[in-house]
Structure formats: C-alpha cells, structure tokens
C-alpha cells in the first residue's frame, strides 16, 4: 500500500513539473521565439553571409556526399540505383545530424549561461528547448534540399505527407536527451566527452548507410535494440516510402517519446535548484 501511494505521489509530482514547464512555454512563447531567432543568428554571427549559410551549408554538405557516392565510389546496392541509394542514405543521415546537432548545441547551454539565466525572466528549462529549436533549422533546410532531390524521382508520393510524424518524434527525443545532458553537464562537465563519442558510435550502429538486411544476422539484434532505428525508419518511410519496421512501432515510439520528454522535463526542473551552487 505504502509503495503504491509513493509511486502515485511520484507520478503527481512529475505531472506537476510537466504542467509547470508547459505553462512556462506558453507564457514565454514570444520570448522563446525571439531568443531562438537570436540563437540561430548567433551560429553564423561574424560571418559575411550570416544566416544564408543555413541553406548553403545543407547544399554543400549533401552535395559533397553526392560527389563522393555518385562520382568517386559509384556505390550501388541490389534493388537501388546509385541515386536511389544516395537518397536512402540521406533520409537517414539528415535526421541523425539534426539529432546530433540538437544534443551538442544544448550540451553546454545551461552551464555556460548560468549567470545570465538566473537573472532573467527567461525560465532556465527553456534554454535546451531554445537550442533544440535552433538546431532544427539546419535540419529543415537539409530536408528541403532532400525533398527537392526526391521530387523528380519515382520515390515521390503521398507518403511525404507522413513527414510531420517522424519530425515530432525526433523533436521529442532530441529534447529529452538535451534536457538530461545539459542538466548533468552543469554538475559534471566531463559528460560532454562521453556524449560526443556516444553520438559518433550511434551513427555507426544506426541503420544510416545500410538497411537492416545488410547486417549479418548475428548483429541484427544490435540494430533492433537501437532506439535510433525506430526514429530513422519512419523518416525513410515518409521520404521514400520504404521501411523495415512495422508501421505500428511509430505509434509506440511517439507515445514513448512523449512520455520520455515529460520525464526529462520533470527531471530537469527537479535538478534546477542544484544549479544555484554552480558558477
């Protein structure tokens, strides 16, 4: 009985924290959007082209990949043409880079801005949100380039309308990780090193450059246990109409992502008082 009431209390605690965070987001939505804009401009502040670098960077990044795969390596795999294979890689790579950018940019966001944050009306828990939002700008740019590449091919179709679903999933998961690592990084700056290595490792064990059936059967559980697989596959489906995981997993991943984001928000809010002793 005692345990039950304890877990119920924990649940109401979490819900209360989530309500507070949600209220802050609604209350500060204008400031949040202003500061996200500032954050976006800050990335290329001091450069001559400024924010023009967002589409330019996406073009250059994907262009150089195209050059390597189409001209240098001339990669080809089974049912895919070389061009289709490149599109296949991109539809996994682009969301992964978006996730990676969200996590790295929010990693030190709280730690390095504690002095201003404590003294502004801008709630501290919205700082990682701001960074994730800003990191989604280059992601959307790259997606736009990718869509332009897909449009003339046979891969274009009504499945493109499905794109918001994987985007929401990715946003929620990025936010979850951003809240957790930026909070921990205040207390334990060393986490930054782990996160960077972890992101690189995840890139290799996630089905970005390969499909699940390319993986030797013994290693397949690794792919299926990798949560990143379930984030990338919906993108594949939305962009190219192909997928290796069943559609119902998307519903689960969306639900799990939402729950994780709530838990991370609650955790971050719980940690906030500790930040006060760090400078």
């Amino acid at each position: 009985m005692a345990e039950l009431s304890l877990s119920r209390r924990a649940l109401t605690g979490v819900l209360e924290q989530v309500r507070l965070v949600a209220a802050d987001i609604v209350r500060c939505r204008r400031i949040l959007s202003t500061l996200t804009g500032i954050e976006c401009r800050q990335k290329y502040a001091g450069s001559v082209l400024g924010t023009l670098w967002y589409p330019l960077y996406s073009l250059l990044l994907l262009g150089s990949y195209c050059f390597i795969y189409l001209v240098v390596f001339r990669m080809k795999y089974k049912e895919f043409s070389t061009y289709s294979y490149v599109l296949f890689i991109f539809s996994g790579l682009v969301p992964y880079l978006g996730f990676s950018e969200s996590v790295t940019s929010s990693l030190n966001s709280v730690r390095s801005n504690l002095a201003i944050l404590r003294n502004s009306v801008f709630p501290i828990e919205l700082v990682p949100v701001k960074h994730v939002l800003a990191a989604f700008v280059p992601l959307l740019c790259s997606l736009a380039v990718l869509l332009a590449m897909i449009a003339p091919t046979s891969h274009a179709g009504s499945h493109l309308l499905y794109l918001p679903i994987p985007l929401v999933c990715l946003f929620l998961v990025s936010l979850t990780v951003a809240w957790i690592v930026s909070g921990i990084a205040v207390v334990l700056p060393d986490v930054a090193q782990l996160v960077n290595v972890g992101l690189l490792l995840f890139m290799f064990i996630s089905p970005i450059g390969y499909t699940v059936d390319m993986v030797p059967p013994r290693a397949r559980p690794l792919v299926y246990f990798n949560p990143m697989t379930y984030l990338i596959e919906p993108f594949r489906y939305a962009l190219l109409g192909v997928r290796n995981t069943p559609l119902w997993t998307d519903a689960i991943i969306l639900g799990v992502a939402a729950m994780l984001a709530c838990a991370a928000a609650a955790l971050f809010n719980q940690m906030t008082p500790v930040f006060f002793d760090y400078e």
């Binding site: 202003t34 500061l35 500032i38 401009r41 502040a45 001091g46 201003i116 502004s120 009306v121 801008f122």
Partner: peptide, 16 residues
C-alpha cells in the same frame, strides 16, 4: 560577434 543592436535586443528579450 553580435552588433550592439542585436545584443540590446537579446538583453531585452532576456528581461522579458
């Protein structure tokens, strides 16, 4: 790297 103008707007935004 921001101009004075951009910084003032950022500072104002932080103050709500």
């Amino acid at each position: 790297e921001f101009t004075g103008r951009q910084n003032v707007y950022a500072s104002l935004a932080h103050q709500g």
